[in-house]
Design a protein around this nucleic acid. Structure first.
Lengths: 227, 227
DNA sequence: AGAATCAGTGAACGTCTGTACACCGAAACT
DNA sequence: AGTTTCGGTGTACAGACGTTCACTGATTCT
């Protein structure tokens, strides 16, 4: 970041690459976040103590304060991180949807569910964190999560508007439908996590999610006509 | 329970009705349950200590053990209680559905949502408890809740089978649909609780729930034909 | 080379936690 | 009547908790 030339004083190349101070700090910060994500798995963030986190990371309790000033603010950082990965997933879903926005609903649904399952598998800690702390975290964390989910719903609504057959929907319809979809996808994520390594169960859950998503879409497409 | 005649030694009627021992115990037990329900409102049951509960009830900490042997077993009692009231609600929904099972889906939906909103308003502590501890309670509590929700879904599936137009559904369809409905109703309950006393917001949430429920049903009725 | 920064240390504090134990006194049984 | 039962009490303890403070020593800046 500085304008100076090579700031590294290491002359020979065999030194194990001395860590810079900010790198080291970032590494510890990550370790704290990971430890908290891990520990909150039993029960919830509310059940996690600063001392537990410190012990898990391998620092002394007071060292925690160099990075966060409370478990709650740590929680808010985890919310940011979790939704960053969730947004990455939504971007993946969107990308495919846009490249062929015409026609086959079924394939869009299939793809969306597959992307969801993929991300849940790789980032299940984040999804689990959201699902859990949404209902049970510290108040500030709960509110942050609700807010983020609201944003996701609005994003999804905007996406839905690009699909064919949705011209008759009111803005209320869009809101309802994306709320319904987000809700059931959160539930799917929870179920996938609960299923753990049981691949058969996972596939069953994905199949159910596909069906449910199709039902919702079919219902949404028909419902204006059938009230 | 004994065969003896009047066991009460009170001769005159103006005595303030001496409490029997089991009555007194039950009263304290109730107070403990209520206190725990209350205290777990901030965050979760995991964040509630035996001593807090005891202080709230007005007994000494060790007195707690006369009724429960841990916060966790108290939680299991609350699960029973909460689902008892949820079941009462389902019974109410069912009763009306059965008295006129033909035709008007819309009115069934309207009625169901109204009953839900009613019960949520009166028993919001129970619903909130379920929604919260389902994701964040002690492990045993979480499992108990998941199990009970599974039962509710099966009950609902059996109910749906009585409605007209559902003959083409497979047993998988029934499972998927009731899962979808239960999931979105749980979400509705959460939203209603979050809305608090704001009557306008409540009405909006109910309207959304009605719409969503109709969409799901319309989708379910059409989806076999449109895959 | 010298000064400043700052992630991590270690001891100490007051408070809260769950649990053990012996005890009380009124209700319930015989 | 005498005895047992048992909900609730009071004291006590060891451990975990969040937070304070003064510290160290390697990295970074000048």
């Amino acid at each position: 970041m500085t304008a100076a030339g090579d700031p590294s004083p290491v002359a020979v190349g065999d030194a194990p690459r001395v860590e810079t101070r900010v790198e080291r700090k970032e590494r510890t910060r990550r370790a704290i976040l990971d430890a908290a994500l891990d520990l909150s798995g039993e029960t919830s963030l509310v059940g996690v103590s600063l001392r537990q986190v410190a012990k898990e990371v391998g620092i002394v309790p007071t060292g925690f304060y160099r990075h966060f000033d409370s478990i709650e603010s740590l929680g808010l950082a985890l919310v940011d991180e979790s939704f960053a990965s969730l947004r990455a997933m939504l971007r993946d879903v969107r990308q495919i949807d846009r490249q062929d926005p015409e026609k086959p609903f079924a394939s869009i649904v299939d793809h969306s569910v597959r992307v969801l399952a993929d991300h849940v598998e790789r980032q299940h800690q984040h999804f689990l964190f959201i699902a859990r702390e949404r209902a049970a975290g510290p108040r500030a964390v709960r509110e942050a999560i609700r807010h983020e989910i609201g944003l996701c719903e609005r994003e999804l609504a905007a996406d839905l508007a690009l699909l064919p057959g949705t011209t008759r929907w009111s803005s209320e319809d869009f809101r309802n439908i994306s709320n319904l979809i987000v809700t059931s996808m959160v539930a799917t994520a929870e179920a996938l996590i609960a299923a753990g390594d049981d691949v058969e169960a996972r596939e069953q859950i994905c199949a159910a999610a596909r069906t449910q998503l199709r039902m919702v879409i079919v219902g949404a497409l028909h419902w204006r006509a059938n009230v």
